[in-house]
Design a binder for these strands. Structure first.
Length: 803
RNA sequence: GCUUGUGUGGCGGAACUGGUAGACGCGCUGGACUCAAAAUCCAGUGAUAGCGAUAUCGUGUGGGUUCGAUUCCCACCACAAGCACCA
């Protein structure tokens, strides 16, 4: 059998018969939407890791179709982004052309693997028909007050004179030239994502994401509940701090404020050591976010002379410091410092020789801080805290808060780590942001009917020296007129991040050819939610959060039917090289799926990737194991020769239990045990001396079909077993026939396994006991001994205690 | 440091709600076929002792609960990933 030929043959058959076409509004069938993350079509081609998740969900989709569902299993391309731009610059071709080529390669590779994608719904985020709607949605954000311009720091390489992404500036140095990255202020578009913190947290309850995925999201949102407190400055003025440990308020010995915050700028006129303070601010500004947070040990800082703050509970006057561990954009940009009960404050106090006051008893505050994770819930009590002394921490927390709230100087608040989304990129290869700057009118949105705002078709897309987007150089594109007053105006030259296009593509798949809307409400209501969404673990925090934010916003303005449009999120484990390391060109351990398909065929690769291990766990590539799967398929072919002219199933239990196992495993991501169940079935068939029936063969082929679709169809046709499997119904099983009527169970004596006994459903404790007394090896353990206890758990075990 | 996950033969991995640990596959050993090899087929394969029936040990380590623990509880170790001065 020529695998290449039969694979081609069936791929053609599916294409001609539109076997995998999903129809919108098919009222006869239940909709079922299975989605795998659309890939970024890189120049390297499809990775065996892609093959793993695509095969897994392809198998699921194929089974669901046979079970009578209207399955939506789409594929597309996430083709904007820096890598395409870099590749284009290096190879001197337009990113558009590079992307087109790469998509072509990817698509061909996918086709040779026989994935049942509905190619009618294919699109790329770089298609103007698609990004028109990405731009349109940005305008909705803007019109609803959710998009604004703000000056934000960007990673800047002073040598390359270019803006770097966080990834390209890992470790605080430029990836290209190794120069230390600095922070440069730039005016950028922002989306008000932080205002959705609570909704994004609550929304998780309406999803069925894996627990670890939910936790990732919860961590990223980073909610903390505490108190915002007003602090008076000696000689007038005040500022606010945020704390989650108000119970330690009597332990305040100083305050620390952020060098990058607004507060220090306001206080500047009263500062006595201006030079020193300014120098420290400057030093901090030089540090990238990375460098700043990596400084884990040394607590740098600088006193702010001339400013003293008053502890509101006892009127104590304490000094104020600058410290770069306090962040300008979290909380209020200022903290109260209680060195006895916060390790960070403790280290700062040690480094700067500051006073410490213990206010919660039970810790060793001379050597390290006694922190809230250690004292909470342990019944610890307060000391040195006036009327609160002696109260438990929990009680004091409440009473102190109440007192401060009553005085009108404190408020209970929630803080979130999640910030607004920086939505501008100084790049060519992204969706242009459809905004125009007019000297008279300010920022003006483009008229919706003028969308899409196309990327100019020019040869220059290298970044500029000034850090502006390459678009800034293209004058005929930049210069336009104000949509409001008609005066001369300029376009925004930054583009969107590539998270933008991927934040709503799953909606577009529901209605990909719609020219009037991004997707019709009817189509979205019909498909309802993405039932399964599979993607890499690296996207479970950010991409998923962006996508949920985007959807929640669309929901709030009435454009999508559900607040959460993704129901289950799962992620696959990585495929490592045979040396157990991540596959990479430099390590030379990359496996190209094309080579495997050529040598063994697509079905072998598919079976192997499903069988290689737990789907959600990382696993190393193993050629021998791959060959084993090839052997399995060859035996499947060979056993066809033994078909006899009998009918039905010799072993009803085998048939029923295998149907059950495979049907369940394909929707619980246990693909490896599904394959193993089929191997067991084949092993049993091979033991039949008079061959197998057509029914038996057809069953095996049908159950294997979702994983190895080509060869099973071919054999089904060759032996005239019935209609093509992909057009047939999935087999059902009879629960009562999935178990043998007798079962061999273990016999334990004093907790040790001593033998086996065969039992039937009808057996009672008494009959089992009689059976056991006849077993040689067990007799010697019970004879002449007193049976203290006799336990028989039907279908499980016999356990005897003797003395 | 924090969070999460993982730890089972030579290897990838099975084991339902606590019930015969090691399914299935790979590898290895022996045999058949062959001039020979590959492929294929048959048998065996956790460790130790024994010709053998069988016995002892065995799911990262140390405890505990239980008639019975890979599974539950406590403490610890190792590895991986994510977050990382978040007040």
């Amino acid at each position: 059998m020529n695998t290449m030929e039969i694979e081609k043959k069936w791929q053609k058959y599916w294409e001609e018969h539109e076997t995998f076409k999903a129809m919108n509004n098919d009222s006869k069938k239940k909709p079922y939407y299975i989605l795998v993350e659309f890939p970024y079509p890189s120049g390297a081609g499809l990775h065996v890791g892609h093959v793993r998740s695509y095969t897994a969900h392809d198998a699921m989709a194929r089974m669901k179709r046979m079970q009578g569902y209207n399955v939506l299993f789409p594929m597309g391309w996430d083709a904007f982004g820096a890598p395409a731009e870099q590749y284009a610059i290096k190879n001197h071709i337009h990113p558009k052309d590079a992307v087109r080529e790469n998509i072509h390669t990817f698509k061909n590779q996918m086709k040779t693997l026989g994935f049942s994608f509905d190619w009618d719904r294919e699109f790329s985020t770089t298609d103007p028909e698609y990004y028109k709607w990405t731009q349109w949605q940005f305008l909705q954000f803007y019109k609803h007050g959710m998009a604004y311009k703000a000056t934000m720091p960007v990673n800047w390489c002073p040598n390359c004179k270019t803006v770097l992404s966080n990834e390209d500036s890992a470790g605080g140095v430029c990836e290209r030239c190794g120069t230390e990255v600095i922070q440069k202020e730039k005016s950028q578009w922002m989306l008000k994502m932080a205002s959705y913190s609570e909704d994004l947290l609550k929304g998780l309850d309406d999803t069925h994401f894996a627990e670890k995925v939910k936790l990732g999201q919860i961590n990223w949102i980073g909610k903390s509940t505490g108190v915002e407190l007003d602090v008076e400055i000696v000689g007038g003025g005040k500022f606010s701090i945020f704390t989650t440990a108000i119970e330690t308020i009597y332990g305040i010995t100083f305050f620390v404020i952020a060098p990058d915050g607004k507060l220090i700028k306001e206080l500047m006129p009263r500062v006595e050591n201006k030079e020193e303070v300014e120098k420290y601010i400057e030093e901090t500004a030089k540090k990238s976010a990375m460098a700043r947070t990596e400084l884990n040990k040394d607590k740098t800082g600088c006193i702010v002379k001339g400013i003293k703050a008053i502890n509101p509970v006892n009127g104590k006057e304490v000094p104020v410091f600058l410290g770069d561990f306090v962040l300008g954009d979290y909380g209020t940009g200022a903290v109260m410092a209680v060195p006895s009960h916060d390790q960070r404050d403790f280290e700062y106090a040690k480094a700067h020789n500051l006073e410490m006051i213990e206010v919660i008893s039970g810790g060793d505050t001379a050597n390290h801080a006694f922190e809230k994770q250690d004292y909470l819930g342990k019944g610890c009590t307060l000391v040195n805290s006036e009327e609160f002394t002696g109260m438990t921490v929990e009680e004091a927390k409440e009473k102190i808060t109440q007192k401060l709230v009553d005085k009108g100087i404190a408020r209970k608040v929630n803080n979130y780590k999640m910030r607004d989304w920086i939505f501008s990129r100084q790049r060519f290869w992204g969706e242009p942001i459809p905004m125009i700057y007019c000297e008279h009118c300010g920022w003006v949105p483009m008229d919706e009917k003028d969308l899409p705002l196309l990327l100019p078709d020019v040869a220059e897309y290298e970044p500029t020296d000034t850090g502006e987007s390459p678009l800034a150089k293209i004058e005929e594109w930049v210069n336009t007129t104000c949509p409001k007053c008609g005066a001369k105006a300029k376009r925004e030259t930054d583009t969107m991040p590539n998270w933008a296009g991927s934040s709503w593509y799953f909606l577009r798949f529901m209605d990909p050819h719609n020219t009037k809307e991004f997707a019709s409400m009817d189509a979205m209501k019909y498909w309802s939610k993405v039932n399964w969404y599979n993607g890499g673990m690296e996207h479970t925090a950010r991409h998923l959060l962006y996508a949920r934010f985007w959807v929640q916003f669309l929901y709030n303005i009435g454009l999508v039917p559900h607040k959460e449009m993704i129901d289950i999120r799962v992620s696959h484990g990585m495929i490592l090289g045979s040396n157990n390391e991540k596959m990479s060109k430099s390590k030379g351990n990359v496996i190209n799926p094309d080579d495997i398909v050529k040598e063994y065929g697509a079905d072998t690769l598919r079976v192997y990737e499903m069988f290689m291990g737990d789907y959600q766990q990382d696993v190393a590539w193993n050629v021998d194991s791959l060959k084993g799967c090839n052997r399995f398929l060859n035996r499947i072919i060979k056993i066809g020769e033994s078909i006899n002219d009998q009918e039905g199933y010799k072993d009803q239990v085998l048939a029923n239990k295998t149907i059950k196992k495979v049907s369940e495993d394909l929707v619980t991501l246990k693909f490896n045990t599904a394959v193993s169940a089929l191997m067991i079935m084949l092993n049993e068939y091979e033991k039949y001396e008079d061959g197998i029936t057509k029914d038996e063969y057809r069953l095996l082929l049908t159950l294997l079909n979702p994983i190895a679709p080509h060869i099973t169809e071919e054999l089904n046709e060759k032996y005239k077993l019935g209609n093509p499997i992909c057009e047939s119904a999935w087999p059902t099983y009879d629960e009562s026939l999935t178990k043998e009527s007798t079962k061999t169970i273990g016999v334990q004596i004093n907790g040790k396994h001593r033998g086996e006994v065969e039992v039937t459903e009808e057996d009672t404790e008494e009959t089992v006991k009689q059976k056991i007394e006849k077993i040689e090896n067990i007799k010697k353990y019970i004879n002449e001994k007193e049976i203290v206890k006799f336990i028989y758990i039907p279908n499980k075990i016999v356990s005897i205690i003797v003395k």
